[in-house]
Every structure is written in C-alpha cells, then in structure tokens.
Amino acid sequence: MTEMILAVKNLTASIDDTPILKGVNLEVKAGEIHAIMGRNGSGKSTFSKVLAGHPAYEVTGGEVIYQGENLLEKEAEERAIAGIFLAFQYPLEIPGVSNLDFLRVAYNARRKHQGLAEMDPFDFEDLVAEKLDLVKMDASFLERSVNEGFSGGEKKRNEILQMALLEPTLAILDETDSGLDIDALKTVAHGVNQLTNPNNACIAITHYQRLLDYIIPDYVHVMQDGEIVTSGGKELALELESRGYDYFNK
C-alpha cells in the first residue's frame, strides 16, 4: 500500500476574519504529483501558506494529517523540519546574510532534527556545489546575500536549490512558474523532476497549464472560491486551458 503523506479534510481558514478556505479536501500519497489550478484569489496560495503554517492565517475548521500526525498542532518551523517545504511565490530577501550561510543553517536545522551532527562549512560547500548544477546556478550565487538583487528567475532557482538540499517529503510549489521565461521554467521544472521519487510528493500550484508540460502531474485539481471543485488526471489541465475556469463554476 502506498503511504499517505497528506490528508486534508474540510479545511477552512481565514485571514483577519475573512474566510478564504471554505472546506478543502485533498489526499496526497507518496510518489504523486498534484497540480492545483485556479484563478487569482481562488485560495490556492492561501492553501499553501496554511499547510506551511503561516501565522497570519487562522485555521477555523477541518483537519490536516501529515504522515499520520496532526499537522495543525505544529509550528511552521516544526513542519519544515518534518519535511514540508514551500517554494515561495515571492522569496524574501535577507540583506547581509550570504546564501551559503543561510543554506547551511537551514540544512543543519534539519540534520539536528534527524539526530545527526551539524555539517561543517567545508563539507557543506562540497554538498552545495553538487546541487548547484541541478538548477544551473553559478557558485557566485552562494556568496551573495539571500535573494538580494536576484532576478525573478534566480530567486525561483534558489528556491529549488533549497528544496534539493532539504530533500522534503512534501514539496509545495507556489506559482513557481510565475515570472519565468521558458528557459528558466525548463530549468526549474527539470530540477523538480530530478527531486521527485516514489517516497515523496509534490503539490504544484499554478495558474497556467504550461508548467504542467514540464512537471507532469498525476492529478489536477481546480480550486474556486476556497474549495476544490473538480479533480481529474493530467488531461483536466488541458481541458481547463481550452474551456476556461468559468466552465467549472459551481
């Protein structure tokens, strides 16, 4: 039997007392790639932030079971070290902190959780060097401050680099394709494809079908007004592309 990684039941959530998620249901098993599509404001990004534990959102109902445990009881940082990774739509800049130091601290936080010794800076540099190729990043990126002055594409590649290092069990890509030209999109998608395997899972949130040409989903879900209104196989994305979101209105 394939391991259930994530089970979301009737999840409702709001921000500043405004309900955004109105009963989301989703099951994700190991080895699966799920795409969640929907318009701006449909609740897709909120869903990803709620899963990752953003403190601004209040969960008002439902449950989320991650690898057999109640995810909603955990702080954002605990969810991260338990293997949930969110690739941000707008990765944040951290002036004065080198990308390398940032990656090492994040990597070691995970290792500590796994009961492993922290990796020293020299070994870590070797490890990062291997991963850089995956996202076609130059070593000079490591010396720059985290995301500061990075182009949109560079920021997204940096997210995938972090994903490669942290080896998440559940990766959530929040509009990772937005703002990317086709070459950058291919690079990012290639990176993600290299990282998916039968033991982990991925949720890709996107507006557009084009990402799904490169990251082939097992399931496609359409989100509207805070709910998943339709689910299907990868062909659903194409249907959506030709018929438009209105066709799926409740």
Binding site: A52, E77, F88, V105, A109, H113, S145
Partner: peptide, 21 residues
C-alpha cells in the same frame, strides 16, 4: 516565516536577520 519554513528557529532567525543587517 520564510526562515521558519526553512526550519530555522525564531531565535536563530532574529539573530541571522540582525547580524546580516
């Protein structure tokens, strides 16, 4: 939140942001 999402504890996150600054 960004730093927490990478598994970095709040204390470490604050000191990272401050020393970077």
């Amino acid at each position: 939140f960004y730093l927490a999402q990478r598994g970095i504890s709040e204390e470490d996150a604050v000191s990272m942001l401050v020393s970077g600054f």
